[in-house]
Design a binder for these strands. Structure first.
Length: 131
RNA sequence: GCAGAUGGCCAGGCGUUCGCUGCGUCAGAUUCUGGCGGAGAGGAAAGUCCGGGCUCCACAGGACACGAUGGUGGGUAACGCCCACCGUCCGCGAGGAUAGGGCAAGUGCAACAGAAAGCAAACCGCCUGAACAACACACUUCUUGGAAGAGUGUUGUGAAGCGAAGUCGGCAACGGCUUUCCAGGUAAGGGUGAAACGGUGCGGUAAGAGCGCACCAGCGAUUCGGGUGACUGAGUCGGCUGGGUAAACCCCAUUGGGAGCAAGGCUAAGCAGAAGGAUGUGCGUCCUUGGGCGCACGCGAUUCGGUCCGGGUUGUUAUUCCUUCGGGUCAGCUGCUGGAGGUGUCGAGCAAUCGGCAUCGUAGAUAAAUGGACGCCCGCGACGGGCAACUGUCGUCGACAAAACCCGGCUUAUCGGCCAUCUGCAGGC
RNA sequence: UGGGAUAUAGAGUAAUUGGCAACACAACAGGUUUUGAUCCUGUUAUUCAAGGUUCGAGUCCUUGUAUCCCAU
């Protein structure tokens, strides 16, 4: 399915400003044992992704490793995702999270989130005041 | 061979493929895309404990505070770092550790124990004399059952108490009263304590004591020798000694402007201001008698490391200055990597290090670039096979940890190895 | 990135310039009570870690760890 499209990940496809991150945290979210995903729609028709790893995951080497694994998982799966979304990926504090776990979690969670975005918006209204 | 000591080095390797960030070049195109080439984390990049470069601010000075350092000589841009040496301590040794100036300027501290914890004595104890008592000896007088006196020797007492002596009461245990507890010498001994005013021996003495002597340890002065110096070797003399603690205050010597690349500079975009405070006086000069300008003093603000003195700048009646609160933006470029640079070699030096020559081009990210997958080799671990060398399979297996303006150090973390020199023990020739 | 502070029983605080780590709360055990509450008694500390100075360190010095705060 994605063998014709290059698996690139350039700077335009990344979320880099604090405001964009804050907008995503107010959006729809879903998570499992390995991953937490925040999603919001954006105006232009491209996918963007941001990665956030807190200091509780260890020192700089361990944090960089998790960021790279998350970016690599997104890079392999980006053409399976719909257009016009901003994603923020936050890993859970687990030592056994590898690339395959992140890939399967990302695939399952984005499918769930897309379904929730297209259904009548009951969930976002309920999540807004709590956050 | 085993056990160590010191110094240095490496930080899994190779290949294919999909990606990431700069650079060079070419093409499209107009600041983006593509092709090609080449580059892309460390010995600690870490902690931010010191020192410097660089940038901005401030750059008359003085006094007092404050911080840091502390053997000597050298190295360095500088250092709290490094090298060499000295002293002290530890180790059989190779070696290791060392904040290592001054308690003879002053102040302070030392719980408990101990007689006593700092300035020299007091106390216990030991000794002498006097006094009192008892006993013994011999003497004198009166006199012969004996008494009195003074003497010598021995013993006992001899600072407050269960003391001594006398006397009274009581069968006794004991109780009451009276008297007395004087004058010196001595620091050998006195359980303790981390630490106690030199140690041992002989002499000496009433008892003792560096009181004297010999040796040893320590201090001071001095002579000669070695060293740039810290210091050290040998000798002589002296009084015999004056404790410890300064990572206790302190003293001495040396030294220290402030803030930091989010420094600083440029461009673009955007917004909304509000409140409060700021004293004048004199002189000179110019013109239209009301102001302008300048100077001095005063006052306000700010700055000169913290305070004071004393300076600098600025304002002093208004399109100015200062303070506080609020609003907006937080985008891009630059600084940004060629520097106290790396490697090799020669020379100086014990070394740290320095100099000459040759050669190399070696990260620049900004929610922050080095990653993913596969294969082979290496190492490790587990389970097997084999007498052994070795070999098969498996592994979310591969130390600590990632630049953020740049250097020099220090400290801390670290799987597994390699090399060189040296020491001790055991064995063989 | 720069600056500052703190760490003591389960949680909260003391420890007067170095000399036996204290207090109330909580927990546990025992006692009082018919039972419970109250009350009484007792127990519970690697003073954040390592090293040094000192006869002796919670205290002084050095290094590290963790947490919190401030500026931009």
């Amino acid at each position: 399915m994605s063998e014709f499209k290059p698996l690139l990940l350039s700077q335009e496809q990344r979320i880099r400003s604090g405001g964009d991150f804050r907008r995503c945290y107010n959006g729809v979210r879903a998570g499992d044992d390995h991953l937490l995903v925040f999603v919001v729609r954006n105006e232009n028709k491209c996918r963007r992704v941001g990665v956030s790893v807190s200091k509780k995951h260890g020192n700089a080497v361990k944090r960089n490793r998790k960021k790279r694994l998350l970016r690599e998982a997104y890079r392999g799966l980006q053409h399976d995702l719909p257009q016009g979304l901003d994603l923020v990926l936050v890993p859970r504090q687990r030592a056994d999270s590898g690339l395959e776990e992140f890939r399967s979690s990302l695939r399952r969670l984005t499918r769930k989130l897309v379904r929730r975005l297209e259904s009548p918006r009951m969930r976002p209204v309920r999540t807004e005041p709590s956050s």
